[in-house]
Amino acid sequence: MSDPAPLKAVFFDRDGVLNVDSGYLHDPARLEWIPGAREAIAALTAAGVRSIVVTNQSGVARGYYGEDAVHALHAHMQGELAVLGGAIAAFYHCPFHKDAVVEAYRCDDHPDRKPNPGMILRGLAEQGLSAQDCVLVGDNDSDVEAARRAGMQGFLFEGGDLLAFLRERLGPRFPPAPGNGTAA
């Protein structure tokens, strides 16, 4: 059996994977990281593995907050990750929902809304990646289904420490820390 392809990127759902899902999170003051999430992103960044976020944001469609708030939260997350040497290579969000109260965001089955793979496919194309070189981590079956539809392996994260989860699930594909040959 051949070795798996080197890992080039990890796609992450946001709420429930990187941050605690507090319900329609948009205020940076309410951001609470999942244990091990910042450290996982920092370890991936240090090894040259890109972290990419793909997140459904129906709160925009429901009129709870605007897309500017999504961008502001993501900028805040980048700032907190940078302290540990981590970075998100790209953020993709889908503000569309079939029950939107904001007409501009009403769509019965938007190609970006997971379980559809639109955000993942766009991320692969824009980042010059192949699905077999990437994995997705999500906290819902719709995340894993979106990964499957994109031709990518998906992992269901059900809580706990994200860094430990990635080390366990990815095994030798989890990148070693630069310079020491062991997992970060």
Score class of each variant (00 low, 15 high):
Ser58Pro: 01
Leu84Pro: 00
Leu162Ser: 07
Ala146Gln: 05
Ser142Trp: 03
Ala75Arg: 15
Tyr65Ala: 02
Val102Phe: 00
Leu166Trp: 06
Arg62Met: 09
Met152Val: 06
Pro95Ser: 08
Val102Asp: 04
Lys98Ile: 04
Ala90Phe: 00
Gly171Glu: 07
Gly123Met: 01
Asp143Leu: 14
His97Met: 10
Glu103Cys: 02
Ala125Gln: 14
Arg122Met: 05
Gly63Glu: 09
Arg122Tyr: 01
Ala89Phe: 01
Gln127Phe: 01
Asp143His: 12
Arg113Trp: 03
Leu156Ser: 10
Ala150Asn: 04
Glu158Cys: 09
Ala87Gln: 11
Asp108Ser: 14
Lys98Met: 07
Ala104Leu: 11
Tyr64Thr: 00
Ala150Gln: 05
Leu136Lys: 02
Leu121Thr: 05
His97Glu: 09
Ala147Val: 11
Asp112Lys: 03
Gly154Phe: 03
Ala125Arg: 14
Ala104Pro: 01
Gly154His: 02
Leu136Arg: 02
Cys94Met: 07
Gly59Ala: 05
Asp68Pro: 01
Val101Cys: 04
Asp108Pro: 03
Ile120Asn: 04
Leu84Lys: 13
Lys114Gly: 04
Ser58Asp: 08
Tyr92Glu: 11
Glu67Tyr: 09
Arg122Cys: 04
Gly59Phe: 02
Arg173Phe: 02
Arg149Ile: 02
Phe174Leu: 09
Leu129Lys: 06
His93Asn: 08
Ile88His: 09
Leu84Met: 12
Gly85Met: 11
Asn116Gly: 10
Leu121Asn: 11
Gly79Ile: 10
Val101Gly: 13
Ala87Thr: 07
Glu80Val: 10
Val60Lys: 08
Met152Tyr: 03
Asp99Glu: 15
Arg122Ile: 07
Ala61Glu: 01
Asp99His: 14
Pro95Ile: 09
